[in-house]
Write a protein that binds this DNA or RNA. Structure first.
Lengths: 138, 138
DNA sequence: GTGTAAATGAGAAGGATTTTCATTTATATT
DNA sequence: AATATAAATGAAAATCCTTCTCATTTACAC
């Protein structure tokens, strides 16, 4: 089933690629760094090189299978692409990531870009804060 | 005048720090990477180490004198803090950076954070696109 | 089955930033 | 003004994340 996605993207169906897909699909949180994927692979008892994880994730991104978040402070985070555009809320304490869509913001961005004479190609919006859980803890 | 700002921040008034401030104030664009500041210093005939530039900019950030933008794809960019919050439009071709404020977006973010149970501490919004100038060029 | 181009793993290399540490400097104290 | 001392500096090494190189392995078309 996933093999088709890989083939469609012009990628050979290899074990590392299938396993990375599997991890992205079954992990308990939707947002994983390359390192997270790498560790999950090892825990799963699968041999893989970190370089391969990065390569595969980048290829998946190119193929539209995953998207890459560029979060403040360093390392990239990947999520399975589900076709729905959304932005992110990040907990500054526990690093939990939640998703949201807001049509008002989407549209205002278009207006602002137009006002400034920009042809908008993309945007990135992150709201940082303390999540419900972490608020309780103190 | 700037010396006061440094003292207030608990920082000794040193030549490197004064010069970095001067560069931030007089540069032709408001948004400079550490490397940009470093080069400007050298062109100005001032000796400085790159490590010092990074240190000083980070301290200035801590003191609220500058803010750090975390743009997609690598290196940080700094701008003099003028008290006014704003977001950024970035040209994907020439890397020009423009600023904007939008009250509608600001407020929607508050609403969204509240809906998700987050205590919002900060946010980062970047709109990417092709600027007016670069549209003409092709 | 076999050839070939693509994929892999290990380690080296890369870029941005931070750290270490010996030396210098600003400022508080004589 | 001289001095003590804590902070600041510069250079180089170290770190972090990511990409590249290259020799070896593998998927897949014939």
């Amino acid at each position: 089933m996933e093999s088709q996605d890989l083939r469609k993207a012009g990628l050979k169906v290899t074990l590392p690629r299938l396993k990375v897909l599997e991890i992205l699909e079954t992990a308990d949180h939707r947002h994983l760094s390359a390192e997270d994927v790498y560790k999950a692979m090892l825990e799963m008892g699968e041999e893989i090189g970190l370089a391969t994880v990065y390569r595969v994730l980048t290829q998946f991104e190119g193929a539209g299978l995953v998207s890459r978040l560029s979060i403040e402070g360093g390392h990239a985070v990947f999520e399975l692409e589900d076709g729905s555009h959304h932005d992110h809320l990040l907990c500054v304490r526990c690093h939990r990531i939640e998703e949201f869509v807001d049509e008002v913001i989407e549209q205002r961005q278009q207006v602002i870009a137009a006002e400034k004479g920009f042809e908008m190609t993309d945007h990135s919006l992150y709201i940082y804060g303390v999540c419900k859980h972490c608020q309780k803890e103190k």
